[in-house]
Amino acid sequence: MKHYVKLVRPYLIWSVLMIVIPLILIVIYSVTTGGNTLVNIQFTLSNFKKFAEPIYLQVFMKSLQIGVITVLFCFLFGYILAYKICKFSERAQSFMILLVTIPMWINTLLRTYAWMSILSDNGIVNTILTKLGLDPMTFMYTDFAVIVGMVSDFLPFMVIPIYTSLSKIDHSLIEAAHDLGANNVQTFFKVTFKLSLPGVVNGIMMTFLLSVSTFVIPKLLGGGQYMLIGNLIETQFISVGNWNFGSAISMILAVVILIAITIMRRMDPDDAEED
C-alpha cells in the first residue's frame, strides 16, 4: 500500500496547486475588499450583500430558468435517444455512442459558431424558409438560440449516463414485469425508468452544472447584452475588474450547485439506500 501512496503524491501536490489554492483565493476575495491585489485587504460581507440587488438577482433567476429549461430538454431528448440506442445490436450501440460523443471532442466555441451560422438572419434555417416562400425569422440573440445552443452542447452529458444505466439493466427484470402482467408502458414506468434513475440523476446534475456556469454560449448566441450568471462572473473579472464581487458570485453559484446536487443525490435510489 505504501508504494501506491507515494505514487499518488505528485498528483496530490498538483491538485493542491491547481484546485485548492485558487479555491482558497476565491474564498478570500469574496469576503474582502481591495480589488485584485491582496495587499491591505479588509474583511467584508458587502460583496454578498451586493448580489441581493435586483439587477443581479434577476440575472440569477434568469440563469436558473434557462438552466432548468435546458436540463428539461436535454432530459427529454437524451432519454429518448439513449433508450432508442439500447434497442440496437451491441456493435451498432457502440458506434452510435461514439457518434454522440464526437461533438464533445470539438471546442465549444467552434460548435457555437456553427449554430450562429445556422440560426443567423441569413443563416441556413432562414435560407431554407425563404426558399420555401416563408417569412424569415429572427433566432439570434433570443432565449431560443441560447437554449438550442446549450441543449445541443450538453446533450451528450445526459445521453451517456442514461445509456450506461439503461444498458446495464438485467433483461430478466423486464421479463419478470411482463410475466407479472405489466404491459410495455407499465413496465417502462414501473421498472425500466426506475432502474435508469442513477443515470438520469447524473445526467441532470452534469447538464445543470454546465448550463448555469457557461458563459460562451449565452455570449455568442444571446448577444453582448445577454447576461447569465456565467457572463456576470466573467465581466466582473475581465471587464469591471471587481474580483471580490466576481468571487462572491462564484461562491453563491457553487453553493446553489451543491444544494442542487444534494437534492438530486437524495432522489438517487442507489445512494438513498442507507436511510
Binding site: 421479463e175 419478470a176 410475466d179 402482467g181 413496465t187
Partner: peptide
C-alpha cells in the same frame, strides 16, 4: 398472446427480483 396476458407465472433462474 403476449407474455403479460398469459395465465402463467415464472420463477426465474436468478430470481429477477426488483432491487428497488
Amino acid at each position: 398472446v403476449p407474455a403479460y396476458k398469459r395465465e402463467v407465472n415464472t420463477v426465474f433462474q436468478k430470481y429477477a427480483l426488483f432491487p428497488f
